[in-house]
Every structure is written in structure tokens, then in C-alpha cells.
């Protein structure tokens, strides 16, 4: 214990130099993001598991149907190439669905209170940091899966196709992150949150066009799959992988009509905006 310099412990009543709200917001958001990334770097199991799981899907499921007769799938696709888009979307979806977990743990262990005691310019920065972190994490995981799939010979969307893939994933990740963050504030604890994630995960995958085309499904399941947000992300990506990336091209022949790539993106964008508007009152209440 060293003795204190005269000014060390004295209060500083003088206001901090006036700064713009934007600078404050940036500082707090970057600091909160930095924490999440430090956690990820030092405990990379989330990252590894998030890549490993879809990789296993890709290899095992791909092998399972490797001998399916050619011509069974639309456009004479091999099953591996068909599956690729589904697995990429599933990767981003799973990562985003877990977005609420760190927030839930912060709520439960009281770390959130530490953040709320600080004079944050806006408490949206807590949410914003989570969104930025999960977006980066899920994009990295998806790109890792895409690279592996390419190495396995399932192709790679070139040029503007890649752009379409990234935009689609981004919209899906925003929507699902919003949902997960909402759950993280609405549910009482991490046990309940994990249960919801667990229950939502696989049915949403199976009731989409990730593993099989709509034409394979009984009508009721086809309807489900045709309104499943995952389907709206899978089909544009599948089209991009097929080298057909016109936004006005029909990518989904749903029971209720044809949907174009831009239609799919529109649905995802609406969903993302809608979910954030939906959870906003909840976040305002919990963070006020």
C-alpha cells in the first residue's frame, strides 16, 4: 500500500470535456464488444463447436444421400450441392440463436448491473454490442463452412453471388439475434433459454428446405417450410450457388405462389425490423 498522492483520491467534480454523443456511444459499444471478443478468443469452444456441428451435418448427411439417383433433385443437383446452402444457413441461424446466452448470464450473475450503474450514453449500446458480436461470429462460422464445403467439391458462389449470400445471412442473423435477445430478457433464467433454443433448433431445420426440396414434402409440411424464415434464407443462397443470382429470379415455388430472390430478402428484412420493434418495449423496460 503506497501512500496517496494529494490528488489521487480527491473527487473530480469538473465535468468531463464535452464530447459528442456519437463518440461516447462508440466508446461504450466498442468496449462492450471488445469484452465479448476477448471471451471468445480465450474460450474458443463456442466458435469451434459452431463450425464443427454443421460440418458434421454436411459430411454425414451428404454421405447418407450420396447415392440418391441423379435427377431426383431439381436442376439435376447432387445432394451434397443441394445440402450446402441448408447447412450454411443452419450455421448462421444456430450462432444467432445463441446470441441471448451471454446476455442472460450477465443478467443472472449481476454483471449487467455493473453496466447499468455506469452513465452509458444509451443502453442500446449493450444490445448493439451483442448484435455486432454475434453477426461477426456467425459470419466467420458460415465462411468457414463455405470454405470447407468448397474444399469438399460443393462449389463456391462467385462475385455477386457471394454478395447475395452475405446479405441474406446478415438479414437472417439480425432477425434471429433480435429474437434471442428478446428471449434473454423475457425468460427467467439460462435453463429456460437453453431449453427454448434446444426445442426451436431442429424442428426449424427439418421444417425448411435445408435437407429436402418442397416437392418431397407432404402438403402440410410444405406449407410449414414455405413460411419458415430459414427457407427464405436457404433458397436465395442455393440459387447463388447454382450460379443464378438475378434478384428477380423465382427461387421458391411455394404453395401460395412463386417467390423471387428479392422477395425472400424482403421477407427477411421485414422480419428483422419487426422483431426488433417487437422486443424494443421489453428491452426499454428491462434496461431502464
Amino acid at each position: 500500500m503506497t501512500s496517496a498522492a494529494p490528488t489521487l483520491l480527491s473527487p473530480d467534480a469538473s465535468p468531463l470535456p464535452a464530447r459528442s454523443a456519437a463518440a461516447d456511444l462508440a466508446q461504450e459499444t466498442i468496449a462492450l464488444c471488445r469484452r465479448l471478443f476477448l471471451q471468445l478468443l480465450r474460450r474458443p469452444s463456442t466458435l469451434v463447436a459452431g463450425v464443427l456441428q454443421p460440418l458434421i451435418w454436411l459430411v454425414l448427411f451428404g454421405a447418407l444421400f450420396a447415392n440418391a439417383p441423379t435427377g431426383l433433385l431439381p436442376d439435376g443437383l447432387s445432394y451434397g450441392r443441394f445440402l450446402g446452402a441448408g447447412v450454411i444457413v443452419f450455421t448462421a441461424f444456430s450462432a444467432a440463436l445463441n446470441a441471448g446466452l451471454p446476455v442472460m448470464f450477465d443478467r443472472e450473475f449481476g454483471f449487467l448491473n455493473r453496466l447499468l450503474v455506469a452513465p452509458l450514453r444509451s443502453r442500446s449500446s449493450i444490445v448493439l454490442a451483442s448484435v455486432l458480436y454475434i453477426t461477426a461470429l456467425s459470419l466467420v462460422q458460415s465462411l468457414a463452412i463455405m470454405a470447407t464445403a468448397a474444399a469438399l467439391g460443393y462449389g463456391w458462389p462467385g462475385g455477386s453471388g457471394l454478395l447475395l449470400v452475405l446479405v441474406t445471412l446478415l438479414l437472417l442473423v439480425f432477425a434471429v439475434t433480435g429474437l434471442s435477445l428478446g428471449l434473454a430478457f423475457a425468460l427467467p433464467g439460462h435453463i429456460e433459454l437453453i431449453a427454448v433454443i434446444f426445442v426451436a433448433n431442429l424442428p426449424l431445420l427439418f421444417a425448411s428446405t435445408a435437407l429436402a426440396p418442397l416437392s418431397f414434402m407432404p402438403p402440410w409440411l410444405g406449407w410449414l417450410a414455405a413460411v419458415n424464415p430459414l427457407t427464405f434464407a436457404i433458397e436465395p443462397i442455393r440459387a447463388a450457388y447454382a450460379g443464378q443470382f438475378s434478384l428477380s429470379a423465382v427461387v421458391l415455388q411455394a404453395p401460395y405462389g412463386d417467390v423471387t430472390a428479392s422477395g425472400c430478402l424482403g421477407v427477411l428484412a421485414l422480419l428483422a425490423v419487426g422483431l426488433f420493434l417487437l422486443i424494443r418495449p421489453l428491452l426499454d423496460r428491462k434496461l431502464s
Binding site: 468531463l16 464530447r19 468496449a31 462492450l32 469484452r35 476477448l38 455506469a118 452509458l120
Partner: peptide, 22 residues
Amino acid sequence: ALDKILTGRELLALQGDLYHLP
């Protein structure tokens, strides 16, 4: 409530940023 994964110094830096210290 501490973040077990961060060092003490990193935690203080985070707090400092939340208080907008240059």
C-alpha cells in the same frame, strides 16, 4: 459480479470506457 475471463486490468479498462474517460 466479475467477468472471470477478463483480467482485472481489462475489466477496469472496460469500466473506464463506460464512464467515457479519454
